[in-house]
């Protein structure tokens, strides 16, 4: 691959049941490119957690996956409420998700920690009232 490949997705903020469509599509695309199963697992779980977060907290957003020769970048952007205390949000078990989401098995406070766990680099830019952009890198 001499040039990078970009996959863009709009994440629907209203439809909880379809959350994950972008991640599943990315998984298929990466498989076609011959990326190793473990890398695909890392990228698609990190992305799914991000998608779920955007559905729970931010009424949706956008997801871009950029496949380069040496790394895969995932950029998730939303215009949601922002994260007031990023350090706190990164702690395993900390969650502000409502009970309705918890009954579906989400909201355990493991989303952001999982995104960090499965990626080599992760940066969060967030402004309260304006939105959040998360960039993740998985090295190939």
């Amino acid at each position: 691959m001499s040039e990078s490949l970009i996959f863009h997705f709009d994440v629907d903020g209203e439809d909880f049941t379809s959350a994950g469509q972008a991640s599943v599509q990315v998984k298929k695309n990466l498989r076609r490119l011959g990326i190793s199963p473990e890398i695909i697992r890392q990228v698609s779980i990190a992305m799914y957690e991000g998608e779920i977060n955007m559905v729970i907290h931010a009424h949706g957003g956008s997801a871009d996956v950029v496949v380069n020769e040496d790394k895969i970048e995932i950029i998730l952007a939303d215009k949601g409420p922002g994260i007031a205390d990023i350090e706190l949000a990164m702690q395993e078990g900390y969650s502000t998700a409502p009970d309705s989401v918890r009954s579906l098995g989400f909201g355990a406070g493991m989303g952001l920690p999982n995104m960090k766990r499965y990626t080599d680099e992760m940066t969060i830019e967030s402004k309260v009232g304006e939105g959040t952009t998360i960039k993740m890198v998985v090295k190939l």
Partner: peptide
Amino acid sequence: LSWVMGRAKADSAWITIMSNINIVAVASL
């Protein structure tokens, strides 16, 4: 679900009582 995604290994049998549509995406990913 996030615990499963964080801890379950590929090729495992995942035992759960959760039965909403999201389990399919979690299992696949």
